[in-house]
């Protein structure tokens, strides 16, 4: 059986997707731990799931709606109160490079 589920390069790719960055030592440790965890997940391959519908909700409910009514928004000061940086009624972020 394949004992290597995930490579350091894949860990780096996934970290980038998740907007995380790891140092050398951390990457090594995460790679090894993720590998163990993913190996454990292989258990699931023992289960025959042919024709089984995936369950993504604990309770089957349908059609939960709100009506098209406008409710009060937050005062802009309240919206921005927790912002690390705000200016001119906006959240401020480092320039997006495009």
């Amino acid at each position: 059986m394949n004992r290597i589920k995930i490579s350091k390069e894949e860990v780096a790719y996934v970290a980038h997707l998740a907007r995380l960055s790891f140092g050398e030592e951390e990457t090594r440790k995460f790679t090894s731990q993720l590998n163990d965890i993913l190996l454990y997940m292989d258990k699931l391959n023992e289960v025959d799931t042919t024709g089984v519908e995936p369950v993504t909700h604990a309770i089957a409910r349908e059609n939960a709606f709100r009506e098209d009514d406008v409710a009060a928004s937050l005062p802009v000061e309240a919206s921005l109160a927790n912002a690390p940086e705000a200016r001119a009624g906006c959240f401020q972020v480092p320039r997006v490079i495009e």
Partner: peptide, 25 residues
């Protein structure tokens, strides 16, 4: 990291979808 991997392109079916099916069982 586990979750991002389980949903990422090429692994969704093997992990997230499979797990959701077993959840059904």
């Amino acid at each position: 990291m586990i979750g991002t991997y389980a949903l990422s392109s090429g692994y969704y079916d093997a992990y997230y979808r499979k797990a959701s099916q077993v959840r059904g069982l």
